[in-house]
Design a protein around this nucleic acid. Structure first.
Lengths: 193, 193
DNA sequence: ACTATAACATACCGATCGGTACAGTATGAT
DNA sequence: ATCATACTGTACCGATCGGTATGTTATAGT
């Protein structure tokens, strides 16, 4: 019936995600987007709507992939303590490795947009809730296996670790000394006992 | 020798600080600034330099006042556990109270500018280090008074609490359920023992 | 092969961006 | 009282912003 779309929507959305992740919403212009996505302006608007809708689509793509990534990483270890320890250390290692530090797209959005836009307040909150459940399930696995004390409050502990994860991810943006974050992680993870 | 300045530099800088704190660097325009500061554009440039220099001056003003505020709050209680507990609960209460949530100007800057501008990477890192020392001194006071265990690693614990503070402050921007943050704080503060 | 339709590229829109030239004004030093 | 000087307000700068009108091109359905 008509001409076929010449670009892969998933690929160009992924490119937009990378850019928004790296620079945030305001600092990313449509010119940045067209060059990185490899398509023209009207193609963006026809496929994704305006800048904010594109941003939201990119963020949704991120949170979905992030959640499954977190779940996978935590399931990769039979020891729950080891799982969290490796997880937090990887956050640090990955942030040091890349320049500039991108951190977590969802956390970045929480800071930049959530206070002024309810859609993003909700979207970012729900992602953190979701991650918290993944943490909680992991902790409960540790209780069942006998690795963690039976009276552990899995939910509260998971919530505390989410807070610590957010704090760590943000702190990495200032490139602190390795000892600072290593100490902080070690101390925080003594909550797992 | 010449005409005298008609505005109070400290007052207009404070106005700029409030605005940058609330909206961030990119989302704050010079028009926003002139109307909120109550002075004209050339006055801003002659007194503070360009937009980024003004932002830096505002952030420096913030970090100085913030550090002394944190110190005061922690010194207000003879019990160190109570001091931290009240401190964290106040962060939550204050963030819920204001709309939109401004959070911490320094943390906001860590997310928005530190990854792309070394000056702010350094400035924000040093502020966190400074707060960490205040936390550490408070913990050491608790050790000396016998409230905390003598073998407590004050430095690592302070660093863990800084991470938690950052995480909590950022999380508040998504307006989570009260139980979430209450649980998280309670669990985190069991590190003080 | 023809046609309707949707994607394409270009070129443009008004608005706003950060920043400044300039003319007018007030004040301190002499 | 004069004058040099720094502050003030206006009006403007080129650049870039997000968004779109338009004409062309390619393709699916018939």
């Amino acid at each position: 019936m008509a001409r076929t779309r010449e670009f892969d929507e998933e690929k160009v959305l992924d490119a937009a995600m990378q850019l928004f992740w790296e620079k945030g919403y305001e600092a990313t212009s449509l010119s940045d987007l067209t060059s990185r996505m490899g398509i023209q302006r009207p193609s963006i608007y026809s496929a994704f709507g305006d800048k904010k809708e594109l941003f939201e689509a990119a963020l949704r793509k991120y949170t979905m992939s992030r959640a499954s990534d977190v779940r996978t990483r935590l399931q990769n270890h039979s020891s729950v303590k080891e799982a969290f320890s490796t997880f937090f250390e990887n956050v640090v290692a990955e942030e040091y490795a890349e320049n500039p530090s991108r951190g977590c797209f969802c956390i970045n959005t929480m800071v930049e947009l959530a206070p002024h836009d309810e859609r993003f307040e909700i979207l970012t909150r729900e992602h953190q809730m979701y991650l918290s459940v993944i943490f909680q399930e992991t902790i409960e696995r540790g209780i069942q296996s006998g690795e963690l004390e039976t009276h552990t409050d899995a939910k509260s502990l998971a919530q505390a670790l989410i807070i610590a994860l957010i704090g760590l991810t943000v702190m990495m943006k200032s490139r602190p000394q390795r000892s600072f974050v290593d100490n902080a992680i070690k101390a925080t993870l003594t909550l797992l006992k």
